[in-house]
Write a protein that binds this DNA or RNA. Structure first.
Lengths: 213, 213
DNA sequence: TCTTTTATTGATCATGTGATCAATAGTCGA
DNA sequence: TCGACTATTGATCACATGATCAATAAAAGA
């Protein structure tokens, strides 16, 4: 058993390069705070990481700074910048765009750590949480309203509230799974597909069937 | 200004009847923990109540017991025992039953204190939370699947996952409002009606129009 | 091998926090 | 009005917690 083997949790490998150690702490903090909440104690986190509690404060001025780093790590790249463009690409059928978006998006958000830290930070009123939801509203759901309205052949047109309903119904799968720890389908794509199809059907939008995607 | 006026928060009215004081504490604790989370400090709660911190421990053995009382207060009567019966009463049109249920239910759950304590307790893995969701699953959504399947004239029949999608989309309104503190419609009944109608339409169930209810 | 550098530790501080208990002071019955 | 009862308080304890810092030891260069 090599004492310098990074993958061995038991080996007392002190003196990591600072950037590496910092990343290790952030990764551990994400897992730790996702599990126990943002009020988790620094001593418990340190034990979980196999380092001393005082070392945390060499890399982060205080606990608040550590939590900010956790937020940054978790929120970063959660909304891919290419989606606003792809969602309005009318060369692709609307249904395919919706399914492609939610297939990718659900992969990103139906994840234990994201779901729980997002909820914890939401309850705590974190600024990043607000900004994320505003971004989602403006860059994703807003354009989608236009797309669906344009594609609708019915007199009934969706508004933002309808879009949030579609979105919420899908996100709720992840909430049930990771917040409430309820038994959920291992693969949510079928449920998502049905939800999207019900939504489009309500606005009389042709559906190409599941073979299309 | 009468010194014995209970409604006056400034009057130093000591010595309440124990049952009254206990209820006052529980009510205050519900509001307090809903706001700051279950890790809120007993000294802050006491200050908020205008009593001393030590008095809390005269009415509750420890903080855990107080939180259990908060759970009990908030969870109690949240699922009316008459709904399982009313939801399967086929003398009433299915759409009306669904709308009546979600009209009542949303009144109960789209409430700051319930929403947040439900979420806090869910994240904490509280047993009451699990039981509540199991009850909802078995006594409300389960029967609804049968009702909708029976009413459906389409070959497409909903399953539990579809019902959870309908439910989640509606509940998500309250999450947006009280967890994420996003701007939401003051009256959610229209959004609920639309969600229910889209759902029923997907299973080819006649809709009596909004005049019916 | 020896020296320098610095990542890491262990001890410690100041304050916060749940909980306890004797002392105090409302309230009610006689 | 007076005494008994007890709801309430204020002081306090034991421990937890975020944060600090001098001492230590792992790594790199000469």
């Amino acid at each position: 058993m090599n004492k310098t083997d990074i993958t061995d949790p038991k080996a007392k490998r002190r003196r990591l390069p600072p950037s590496e150690r910092r990343q290790q702490i952030v990764d551990g903090a994400v897992a730790f705070f996702a599990k126990v909440g943002l009020e988790g104690k620094t001593r418990d986190l340190a034990k979980h990481l196999g380092i001393t509690q005082s070392l945390l404060f060499k890399y982060f001025e205080n606990k608040e700074a550590l939590i900010e780093a956790v937020y940054a790590q978790v929120y970063i790249d959660r909304l891919s910048p290419e989606w606003p463009r792809r969602l309005i690409d009318r060369n692709v059928p609307l249904r395919s765009r919706l399914l492609a978006f939610y297939r990718d998006y659900s992969k990103l958000i139906f994840e234990y750590e994201w779901m729980r830290i997002f909820m914890f930070s939401g309850l705590a009123g974190a600024e990043l949480n607000r900004r994320y939801l505003e971004h989602l509203n403006k860059m994703i759901l807003g354009p989608l309203v236009n797309e669906i309205q344009a594609a609708s052949s019915s007199s009934m047109k969706p508004d933002m509230e309808d879009l949030w309903n579609l979105h919420g119904g899908i996100v709720y799968i992840g909430i049930r799974q990771h917040i409430y720890r309820m038994p959920c389908p291992e693969d949510p794509s079928l449920a998502i597909e049905h939800a999207v199809d019900r939504f489009l059907q309500a606005f009389s939008i042709e559906q190409n069937g599941s073979a299309n995607l």
